[in-house]
């Protein structure tokens, strides 16, 4: 398949002296649809359908796409909160695709998640101190008291006052809660953090604070991010490289600059044309996509995007284009290139 070729080239660009931290190969995550009298599997929702991602140490990889395109599923599968149907996840050289139980629990120390909903992602019966010290106490035998200085330092680092230690999550605002969630993810000093739409539930004014905090922490703790969002301007602010997903497929991967300057895939072009412009005098052509996203349970034949693509040709319905490098570091899955 074309995929292997893509992978090799992706590993070679000039600035790739850095090690690859996360290597995802042909990842597929399907949700079975059960039906009928005996609850047999009668179909699959192909939430993630054959994607490849490589993330280098210290890099931020952005992942964008519409709601329901499989971004979150991808993130959760990478963290093994879901079990992939097929494919391989190599984290720091180790294959974590199939590990289970205690081995998986041990491996989790190195990759953590920041969740989307700051209200639902914190246990309402735990105090903030408990929430943040819990990950550490899952792996180390230490008393809460011994840990307290460490936790207070973390609280300070994410911009929360020391008094927060004894409070409960319901006493904080959305942005502060998200800081608690970030502190919890940081507590284990992980190598990778998957941030699943960490600011989409927040006020715009608070969004940038949280984003800047994430950026500062990245330098300080040497973090690698997989940053999932549906807001292109947020991703642009955060990411070194960006992957665009559509219906469980990766349609375009490029570094930040070239993706915005020169989007190649018709879907990416449509997405980027939808970013609001601050300057009202600047007119630009907005590409409005027709129709709805097809059901991932019954994806279209050929290119998944051909049903809505303004540039679709007859053969698009037959050939499913593979992701290939058309310019250095710029990969696109479209037969036009």
């Amino acid at each position: 398949m074309n995929m292997t070729e893509t992978r090799e080239t992706a590993a070679q660009p000039p600035e790739t002296e850095k090690e690859i931290l996360l290597d995802i190969q042909n990842l597929k995550t399907y949700y079975p649809i059960k039906g009928g009298f005996l609850k047999r599997t009668i179909g699959n929702v192909k939430a993630v359908d054959d994607i490849n991602i490589q993330i280098k140490k210290g890099e931020t990889m952005g992942l964008v796409g519409e709601s329901g395109c499989g971004k979150s599923t991808t993130g959760r599968t990478i963290l093994r909160l879901l079990t992939p149907t097929e494919g391989k996840i190599l984290f720091d050289g180790k294959d974590i695709t199939k590990i289970k139980g205690n081995a998986l629990r041990k491996a989790r120390q190195d990759f953590q998640m920041v969740f989307q909903d700051p209200y639902a992602s914190l246990n309402p019966t735990q105090s903030v101190g408990d929430i943040i010290s819990e990950p550490i106490r899952n792996y180390r035998r230490v008393s809460k008291k011994e840990l307290k200085p460490e936790i207070l330092e973390l609280l300070g680092r994410v911009g929360l006052p020391a008094e927060a230690y004894d409070k409960y999550a319901h006493e904080f605002s959305g942005g502060q809660r998200q800081r608690i969630g970030i502190a919890r993810a940081l507590a284990l000093k992980p190598k990778l953090i998957v941030a699943d739409e960490p600011v989409s539930a927040l006020d715009v004014s608070v969004q940038s604070q949280v984003l800047n905090l994430l950026k500062e922490l990245q330098d300080e703790f040497d973090l690698t991010y997989l940053f999932i969002a549906h807001d292109l301007s947020v991703v642009k602010h955060m990411s070194d490289r960006i992957g665009v997903m559509y219906l469980g497929n990766m349609v375009e991967v490029a570094d930040n600059k070239s993706l915005y300057a020169e989007p190649l895939h018709p879907y990416t072009q449509a997405l980027i044309s939808a970013i609001p412009e601050a300057d009202p005098k600047k007119r630009k052509e907005r590409i409005v996509l027709q129709g709805d996203v097809p059901s991932p349970a019954n994806p279209p034949s050929g290119c998944p995007f051909h049903t809505r693509c303004p540039m679709a040709k007859a053969e698009c319905a037959e050939i499913k284009p593979a992701l290939k490098e058309v310019k250095p570091g710029h990969h696109v899955a479209c037969i036009l290139y």
């Binding site: 909160l81 629990r105 120390q109 953590q112 998640m113 992602s121 819990e134 990950p135 899952n138 507590a187």
Partner: peptide, 21 residues
């Protein structure tokens, strides 16, 4: 709720997820 997913991701054993969360 996401906090259950979070408790798994921070390394809680299933028994701990049930009892503590």
């Amino acid at each position: 709720n996401e906090y259950i997913l979070a408790s798994v991701s921070i390394g809680c054993k299933p028994s701990k997820v049930i009892i503590k969360h």
